[in-house]
Amino acid sequence: MNQELESHFDEFDKLPVIRRKLLPWWIKTFCWIFMILAICALSSILMSFFISNVNISLYGFSSNTALSPIGMFIVAIMVFKGFAAYSLWFERANAISIGKIDAVLGVVICIVSMFILPFVTSGGHFALRLEIILLIPYYRKLDKIEYEWDNLESL
């Protein structure tokens, strides 16, 4: 009868590591900005029924109404960015994958707006999209923390 007693209190000695701690301050800040932006984007659809001119813009694309094809495209991108931010902030298991898709999609849209949009619009002027300056480090940081994120237990 020499059995070791197994303690169920050992689990309390292990403090859980929160995935959010892996994110740098600037990604945490942008998480809040894009979660709020997603709510505003969805609100712009509702506002379009009452106000004839609701200006929205993202990554070089702009529209005077959220109900146009370009407006719906902008709203969809804003909502997806908000979803990526929500996933990161609330430590979802697939948040890194969603964030990386968000970053790649953002870079592709910026490149399209810089190099293709000037040829198909009447303005025809080149605009350097500075969002790429943050999208590339965002992707790299998510790539760097992906292994640790996937191997941590969330609260």
Rank of each mutant, 00 (worst) to 15 (best):
A95G: 04
Y86R: 02
S52A: 15
I33W: 10
W89V: 00
I56M: 14
M35Y: 07
F83H: 08
L58A: 15
Y59F: 12
L42R: 00
F61M: 11
I74N: 00
A66N: 06
I56G: 05
M35L: 10
L37D: 10
L42M: 13
V75P: 02
V79S: 00
Y86P: 03
I74D: 02
F30W: 14
I51P: 03
L58E: 03
I101F: 14
M78H: 06
I70L: 12
F34M: 13
F83S: 07
A95S: 11
F50S: 13
V75R: 00
V54L: 14
F34G: 02
S68V: 13
I51T: 13
A41M: 12
K81N: 15
C40E: 14
Y86C: 11
A38P: 01
I39S: 13
K100P: 06
L67A: 05
S62E: 08
S57H: 12
I77A: 04
G71T: 05
A85C: 05
G71S: 11
G82R: 04
G99T: 03
L46Q: 06
S87F: 11
A66E: 06
I45H: 06
F30Y: 13
F61A: 10
Y59C: 05
N64Y: 11
S48C: 08
I33Y: 14
L58Q: 04
V54W: 12
I70A: 13
T65W: 04
I56S: 01
N53V: 12
V54S: 06
W89F: 09
I45V: 15
A76G: 11
I51R: 10
I39L: 15
N55H: 13
I98Y: 08
I70C: 11
C31Y: 07
F83D: 01
N64C: 08
L46N: 07
G60T: 01
L58R: 07
S63T: 09
N94A: 12
C40D: 12
Y86W: 15
F73M: 13
I96Y: 01
I101P: 05
I36K: 01
S62D: 09
G99I: 03
W32Q: 06
N64V: 09
Y59I: 00
F34A: 00
F30M: 13
N94K: 14
L46D: 03
I96K: 00
L42C: 11
L67Q: 07
F73C: 08
L46S: 04
F61Q: 09
A84V: 08
A84S: 15
S97M: 04
I98D: 06
G99M: 01
F30H: 11
M72I: 09
L37Y: 10
L46E: 03
M47N: 07
L46P: 06
W89K: 00
I33M: 13
V54D: 14
R92K: 14
K100M: 10
F30R: 08
P69E: 08
A41W: 00
I74R: 02
N53K: 14
I36F: 13
F73V: 07
A93F: 07
A93N: 13
S43G: 11
M72R: 03
F61K: 04
